[in-house]
Design a binder for these strands. Structure first.
Length: 488
RNA sequence: GGCGGCGUAGCCAAGUGGUAAGGCGACGGCCUGCAAAGCCGUGAAUCCGGGGUUCGAAUCCCCGCGCCGCCUCCA
């Protein structure tokens, strides 16, 4: 009876049945980016994983206010601005815009709200004042710090205890802090730095503060879902919990979800390691759905190793998928009659797909399993295709039903295989041809010449033309519906 | 050192108590003028190793081994 959605909650370290606080409403907050540099595959993974969660929740009938924030003021932004002689605002604007464009290209739906830190300075100041009033924060030389030892639950998300952390401490020593683990709620501006006026003097908010303030504003005191990368568990999310719960006295988050990180040759992809692949580069080389497929064929909590070979495999798998749907779309009614043997199997496979696809997602968003069920269905489509050249009325209807179901489930929820197969094929041909510097017109001409040669039984010439095309990266296959080609 | 995760066929990867999905690749066959694609078949005595619980374990527990992440900004 798997009609309950179970998700792995980092707070309890186990899968739990998802019960929102006020159904059918589900509040969801995901940590976005700090806008100081271009986005890479790791950012794309978080965006896509939570996009699928958002789409799935809506499919289940929930109303989902979804918030994804932008950190648009921060040391790294200021540093970059100073280095490049531009304003911090310009830097932030640029990378926020690029991120929005690139995630949109990836088929990531826009969240309900995309708040920016600097647009919520009053809310943050108010939150700091609440924390000061409660005695869990203190002012020190123009800065405000959160006193971690005043919050009894500190460490509950990351499974750490204060004493242990102090023991191994690699934390920055500051004479302004009472405890080395205390973190800044408000930072004083140094000369030349951007600042906002506050009761403690000119300065800017600490990083962790914005998520507490903005989630409070847009989602209320208790969030149903809070997401982000695994690397945000400590200290970021731990600190958010401390700030929020100390201020409101209410549980901050019911379910914390964290996606695994991308690795390259087994090593974490990170800007500091210089081993990252930018989203921009990936989008220039692969169809967005190839990137989504690559990301979703592994469970969201596992590490995912990026290699060009794996990307090529994802591309090939997606081309095969769309190729099958493309021909399924060409199935037309040719005679009276019901479902014959292959069609009956396809019909059963369709029912199985409907059930298993959703069951997979209900089990902690198991997209890898869901993708597997999609390929199972496609395999049955391929078995059906040879008999479908002369399809019966019912078979033609079945073909349409399969296409509609794939679009409705995989297309709407995973964002994969939802495009019109004909458009996908044509766009991909154009895109890849351009990428390889081939003229599609020339390909069509060669194909026509080859068909002519084949009709004339001049197979030597036909094969030579096919070889020429292959040398250009154009793979030709002959089908009952005529030749079909893709650029690899 | 502390906390967390992972280890399943050549590679990638599901499966978390009832007898090993799927993708890529390989081999044989069918189809094809020949190919490609597709289809059919072959491929894990077995899920890192060793104990234990159970009628039954890749799945639960314990002990090892190996890899990774976090403990500092990081999706």
């Amino acid at each position: 009876m798997p009609n309950a959605f179970r998700i792995y909650n980092t707070l309890t370290r186990r899968k739990e049945v998802f019960k929102p606080l006020r159904p059918p409403r589900v509040t969801m907050y995901v940590c976005g980016i700090t806008a100081y540099d271009e986005a890479h595959l790791g950012h794309a993974r978080a965006a896509v994983v939570f996009d699928v969660l958002y789409r799935f929740l809506r499919h289940l009938g929930y109303e989902v206010p979804y918030v994804r924030n932008y950190t648009d003021i921060d040391d790294k932004i200021i540093n970059r601005a100073q280095r490049e002689g531009r304003s911090w605002r310009e830097i932030a604007e640029q990378y926020i815009r690029e991120y929005q464009e690139e995630t949109a290209a990836l088929g990531v739906l826009s969240p309900t709200h995309e708040p920016r830190a600097t647009e919520h300075i009053p809310e943050m100041i108010a939150l700091v004042e609440r924390l000061l009033a409660r005695g869990v924060a203190y002012v020190s030389d123009g800065e405000v710090y959160f006193a971690v030892d005043k919050f009894p639950g500190y460490g509950k998300l990351s499974g750490r205890r204060l004493e242990e952390m102090l023991a191994g401490a690699r934390v920055e020593v500051s004479e302004k802090k009472r405890n080395p683990l205390d973190f800044a709620l408000w930072k004083a501006a140094k000369p030349g730095e951007p600042y906002w006026e506050s009761p403690w003097g000119p300065g800017r908010p600490g990083w962790h503060l914005e998520c507490s303030a903005m989630s409070l504003k847009y989602c209320g005191e208790t969030l149903d879902l809070h997401g982000g990368g695994l690397d945000l568990i400590f200290p970021h999310h731990e600190n958010e919990i401390a700030q929020s719960e100390a201020a409101t006295g209410k549980p901050f988050v019911r379910y914390f979800m964290h996606n695994g990180l991308i690795t390259v040759n087994g090593e974490k992809m990170a800007k500091s390691l210089g081993n990252y692949v930018s989203l921009k580069t990936l989008l220039s080389r692969y169809h967005p759905e190839v990137i989504r497929l690559f990301l979703l064929t592994k469970h969201y909590r596992s590490p995912l190793d990026y290699t060009e070979k794996a990307m090529a495999e994802a591309e090939k798998a997606l081309y095969g998928l769309y190729g099958s749907l493309y021909f399924l779309g060409k199935v037309e009614y040719a005679k009276e009659g019901g479902l014959r043997k292959a069609a009956k199997r396809l019909s059963e496979a369709l029912s199985r797909f409907r059930e298993r696809f959703l069951t997979a997602l209900l089990d902690d968003l198991n997209t890898a399993e869901a993708v597997g069920t999609l390929f199972n269905l496609v395999s049955e489509v391929n078995r059906f295709l040879p008999s479908a050249r002369q399809a019966t009325v019912e078979e033609a209807a079945l073909a349409r039903e399969v296409l509609a179901t794939v679009k409705e489930l995989s297309g709407e929820i995973l964002g994969i295989a939802g495009s019109d197969p004909g458009s996908f094929v044509e766009e991909e041909r154009r895109r890849k041809a351009a990428l390889r510097g081939i003229d599609p017109q020339e390909i069509e001409e060669r194909l026509a010449a080859r068909e002519e040669a084949r009709r004339a039984k001049d197979f030597t010439r036909a094969d030579a033309l096919r070889e020429e095309l292959l040398a250009q990266g154009v793979e030709v296959r002959d089908t009952p519906w005529g030749p079909f080609w893709m650029v690899l």
